[in-house]
């Protein structure tokens, strides 16, 4: 997994590529914690280049949402598609998270 961040207006756009699984999610959680601890509370997570997610990755997203809720932050996901979207659907995550069709749409949701 590779994780890139960039600031867009007030929000952080997190772009993940590769796999979000039991091996990579701890690293994802660590980076997200660092960002939230440094004061960022508006996030868009771009899934365009994620080709695999397991329940470990879903738990990472739940943790992120929990940390942001505690700080009054906002989170919207973008470009969740294919098998990743199916895994979201299996666990009801399509309704738990706000999901935009693009990063721009997701940024508008949390604005």
């Amino acid at each position: 997994m590779d994780l890139q961040t960039k600031k867009e207006n007030n929000a952080i756009v997190v772009t993940i590529s590769g796999r979000l699984d039991a091996v990579t999610t701890p690293e994802y959680e660590k980076k997200i914690r660092e960002l939230i601890d440094s004061g960022d509370i508006y996030f868009v997570v771009d899934f365009d280049q994620v080709d695999y997610i397991s329940s470990a990755g879903l738990r990472g997203l739940l943790l992120m949402a929990k940390l942001l809720n505690a700080k009054g932050g906002r989170l919207c996901l973008a470009n969740v598609k294919g098998n990743v979207r199916s895994v979201f659907g299996m666990c009801g995550f399509n309704t738990v998270f706000k999901i935009g069709n693009s990063v721009a749409e997701a940024l508008a949701v949390i604005a």
């Binding site: 397991s54 329940s55 879903l58 738990r59 895994v87 299996m90 666990c91 009801g92």
Partner: peptide, 11 residues
């Protein structure tokens, strides 16, 4: 620990 893994396995 939670239901997530089981939901995926069942699917």
């Amino acid at each position: 620990v939670d239901d997530l893994g089981l939901m995926i396995i069942k699917n």
